[in-house]
Measured scan of single mutants.
Amino acid sequence: CHSECLGNCSQPDDPTKCVACRNFYLDGRCVETCPPPYYHFQDWRCVNFSFCQDLHHKCKNSRRQGCHQYVIHNNKCIPECPSGYTMNSSNLLCTPCLGPCPKVCHLLEGEKTIDSVTSAQELRGCTVINGSLIINIRGGNNLAAELEANLGLIEEISGYLKIRRSYALVSLSFFRKLRLIRGETLEIGNYSFYALDNQNLRQLWDWSKHNLTITQGKLFFHYNPKLCLSEIHKMEEVSGTKGRQERNDIALKTNGDQASCENELLKFSYIRTSFDKILLRWEPYWPPDFRDLLGFMLFYKEAPYQNVTEFDGQDACGSNSWTVVDIDPPLRSNDPKSQNHPGWLMRGLKPWTQYAIFVKTLVTFSDERRTYGAKSDIIYVQTDATNPSVPLDPISVSNSSSQIILKWKPPSDPNGNITHYLVFWERQAEDSELFELDYCLKGLKLPSRTWSPPFESEDSQKHNQSEYEDSAGECCSCPKTDSQILKELEESSFRKTFEDYLHNVVFVPRKT
C-alpha cells in the first residue's frame, strides 16, 4: 500500500485506493498535508475557505447554543480562536489581540433580562453583547459592586439597553466600559436606550469621564423622579442622539420631579488639616426662599486615587461607600458681607490618608415646582503625618564578641513616609551569675543571650482551647457569634421535631 494509506488498500502504491488515510483526505486521495488554498479540518480532512465560511455563517444565523462559528488559524479551520487571539470578521482569520481579548457573548432569543446578581454573573467577562440587555433589578445585597464585577467589562451592545423598574439602582456607572450601543435591534418605538419607572436612579454616568455613542435609535425617559433633566440632556449631547427624540420621548413632568437638581456650584473657602482632623468651610448658599434650606450634607471617604465619582458603590438597598454628615444651616444675616460661612470639623480620621470630599445642599421643593440647590466639586484632601507606631517583631542576635545583629519589621501604621529608623542602645553591667558559677561542674549549661522565638506554653494553649472559665478566673470563653447562636437554635429545633416524629412513629394507638 501507499505510504499515506492506513489499515489496508485495494490497489498497491495508489493513494486513492486506501481504506483510511494516515494524515489527511483531499478529493478522494490521501495526502501528507493540505496544500494551499485548503485548510486542515478536524485533523483528517482538507477543506477550502468557502466550506469553513459556510459553517461560520450557519452557526451565526441559527443562534443555536453550542454550535461553533468556525475560524481560520495556522492553516486550520477550527471552532474558535485560541487564547490571546480574536477573529477578523472580513476573512475569519485569528489575529493577536492588542491588550485583553474581546469576548463576544451571543444571547438566546436576542435579549437577556438581568433581574438578579445570579443572572448578571452569566455575563461575567463579556466585552461584546450580541443582542439586547434588559435591566430589571428590584433589590439585593452589595448590588453596585456585584454588577460592576460582572457587567463592568461590557464595551458594546449590538441591540438596545433597557432599564425598567430597577428600584435598587442609583447610577449606571457599573457599566464602566460601555462605549457603544449599535441599535441594530430596537425596542418598540425605535428606541435604543429605554429608561422607565426607576424610582431611585439619580445618575446615568459621570459624563466628564465617560463617552457613549448610540449609532441608531432614540432615547426614552419616563417616570424617573430623581433623575434630573440636565442629566438626560447631557446624554443626548454626548451620545449623538440630540435631535432624534420626539416631543413625548422625554417626559418633562415625570423626570426629576422629586430630585434636588443642583444648578449652582458650592466653593470651599477654608481648608485646614491635622493628622486626624480636617476643618472645612464653604461659601454660604440661600435659595430664593431661605426657609427652603434644610441644611447641608457632607460626604467623605478614603480615596487612594483621584478618580472618585459621587455615586460609586451606591445602591438604593443601603450600600453606600460614603460617610454622610448632616449639618444645620448657619444663622442668616441681613448683611451679605457678614454672612457666616458654614463648615464642619471632621474628626477621627487616619493620618497621612487622602480623602475625597464634597458637600451639597438639602432643600425642600418650592411652590413653583422649581428645584434649587448647590453642590461642590469633589475635592481631595490629605491629612498630615504623625509619629508612626512601633516597629514590629524586633530580633537581636550576637554573632561574635563585638557585634549584635538587630532586625525588625516595619510598623503596622507608618502614618507617613518613613525615611529612617533611630536605634538606641545602652551598655549593661555583666551578670554576677557568670562569676559565681563553678565551671568545672559536669552538665553545666552556660547562660545564653542568643534570641529564641517566643512560644506559647501548654497552660496558655489549654486556656485558649477551654470553653469555660478556669477556677483562677484568668480566662473566659469568647462570646458566641450570631451565626453560632442561630445554628444552635436550628439544631435544637431539629432535635425537638425529630423526637416528636419518633414518638408518633414508635407509639401507635392500640386498636379498641
Rank of each mutant, 00 (worst) to 15 (best):
S274K: 12
Q121T: 08
L345A: 03
A259K: 09
E264R: 07
N211I: 07
W286L: 09
E264W: 02
V359R: 00
I135L: 06
R369G: 08
P287T: 09
Y160P: 01
E368T: 14
R247D: 06
Y305W: 14
D377S: 09
E109T: 13
D377V: 08
C317E: 03
Y300V: 08
L180M: 11
L107Q: 03
Y305C: 15
G318K: 07
L298C: 11
F311E: 14
G152T: 02
D328P: 14
V104E: 15
K253P: 10
D328M: 14
L345T: 10
F311A: 12
I378T: 06
I232G: 01
G243T: 14
H106V: 07
A356I: 02
P388V: 01
A144G: 04
R369P: 07
P225L: 07
N198T: 03
L186E: 09
I250D: 05
K350P: 02
F220S: 08
W322G: 02
K277W: 10
L151Y: 01
F365P: 10
L280Q: 00
Y300K: 01
N320F: 14
W344A: 15
E122G: 15
N334F: 09
I114R: 00
Y355A: 02
S398F: 14
K177P: 01
V363D: 04
L107K: 03
S158M: 08
L161Y: 01
W282M: 05
Q382N: 06
F311K: 12
L349Y: 00
S338M: 09
C126P: 14
L133F: 13
R124Y: 01
D206S: 10
I181L: 10
P336Q: 11
G217S: 02
V170M: 09
S171M: 04
N190K: 05
T309A: 07
L229S: 03
I404N: 04
G189F: 06
F193V: 10
A374T: 03
I214Y: 04
R291G: 09
N387R: 10
E283Q: 01
S269M: 05
I134W: 10
T361R: 05
E262L: 15
Q199N: 13
N150W: 12
K360I: 05
S132N: 13
R332T: 13
N307V: 07
Q403R: 05
A168K: 00
W408S: 01
D257Y: 05
R281L: 09
K267N: 04
D312Q: 04
A251H: 14
L201R: 00
K407P: 00
T113R: 03
L227S: 00
G131D: 00
S119R: 05
E368P: 03
D257E: 07
E262W: 09
Y380M: 03
T213N: 03
S401V: 15
G256E: 05
A251G: 11
N224W: 00
P388L: 02
V324E: 15
P288V: 14
S208V: 06
W282H: 02
L362M: 15
W344Q: 05
S400D: 06
P342F: 08
K409M: 02
N200Q: 15
F220R: 05
R176Q: 14
F174G: 02
I405A: 10
S321E: 13
V390I: 06
V104L: 07
C261S: 03
W286K: 10
L161T: 03
E109K: 12
Q121R: 07
E122Q: 09
K350A: 10
S338G: 05
L196V: 14
F175H: 01
N399G: 12
H233D: 03
K242L: 12
L293Y: 03
L123F: 08
P330E: 12
W205Q: 01
I137N: 15
T127P: 07
I405N: 08
K209H: 12
L266A: 02
E184A: 07
A195R: 00
Q339R: 07
D289G: 09
Q382V: 02
K267P: 08
L108K: 11
L406R: 02
D289H: 10
I134R: 06
G295R: 02
S338W: 14
E146P: 15
I214G: 00
I154P: 00
W205G: 06
Y160D: 01
V325K: 05
L280G: 01
I154R: 00
M346R: 02
D289W: 05
Q245F: 04
I214L: 07
E156S: 08
E368K: 10
N255M: 03
F221R: 00
S208W: 07
W352H: 14
L204R: 00
C261K: 01
S333W: 15
P329Q: 13
T185K: 13
V128S: 10
S260T: 11
N334G: 15
K407W: 15
K112P: 02
N248G: 06
T383P: 00
A149P: 09
D115Q: 04
L133I: 02
K103R: 11
N334P: 14
T273D: 02
L108T: 06
A259P: 13
S116A: 06
L151K: 00
I135E: 00
L349H: 00
V325A: 03
D249Q: 06
Q199C: 05
L280V: 14
L196I: 14
L201A: 02
Q199M: 10
D249E: 15
I357C: 04
Q203H: 07
K103G: 12
S116F: 07
D315K: 03
W408H: 00
A374G: 11
P411H: 01
Q203T: 03
T118E: 08
R369T: 07
